[in-house]
């Protein structure tokens, strides 16, 4: 993609980023920060690409370290955010619904699913 298109996308993303959080109450600051924190764990995609193209063992080692760190950011970020929000939900009549299965489900999938797909190859 050429530079100008990337620049356009970047500038538009800045405004979207400003817009989506501009009116949030302080109650949700922590979960929102934590959720945004999880989203930048998507650097995992970059780490996977670099690791997948590594030819030298040293490069591979460093790239795999990046994969481990990025996965921790991504998976841990979503799981911890979900745990925070689970508690918010609890106050709205826990009696109404039966307790759901452990919250971490959503996040834990992240790491596992590519694995399953991978083994098909």
């Amino acid at each position: 993609m050429d530079g100008i298109s990337l620049l356009t996308i970047t500038v538009l993303a800045v405004f979207v980023g400003f817009e989506v959080v501009s009116k949030v109450s302080s109650t949700l600051h922590t979960p929102l920060m934590s959720g945004a924190n999880a989203i930048h764990g998507i650097i995992l995609v970059g780490a996977i690409i670099v690791a997948g193209q590594a030819t030298h063992p040293w490069v591979l080692a460093v790239a795999l370290l990046a994969v481990v760190l990025a996965t921790a950011n991504l998976v841990g970020g979503f799981v911890v955010t979900d745990r925070m929000l689970e508690m918010f939900r609890g106050r709205r009549g826990a009696a109404e619904r039966p307790p759901e299965k452990p919250s971490a489900q959503g996040g834990a999938h992240e790491g596992e699913s590519p694995e399953r797909k991978g083994s098909v190859r």
Binding site: G52, Q53, V67, V68, T71, A108, G111
Partner: peptide, 25 residues
């Protein structure tokens, strides 16, 4: 993307989530 070292990558993902998810939970 054409990726080499896939087992290694999957292993690293497993390590990362294996450490982070339980801690976060």
């Amino acid at each position: 993307v054409r990726l080499d070292n896939v087992p290694w990558i999957l292993g690293a993902i497993a390590v990362g989530s294996g450490v982070a998810a339980p801690v976060a939970r």
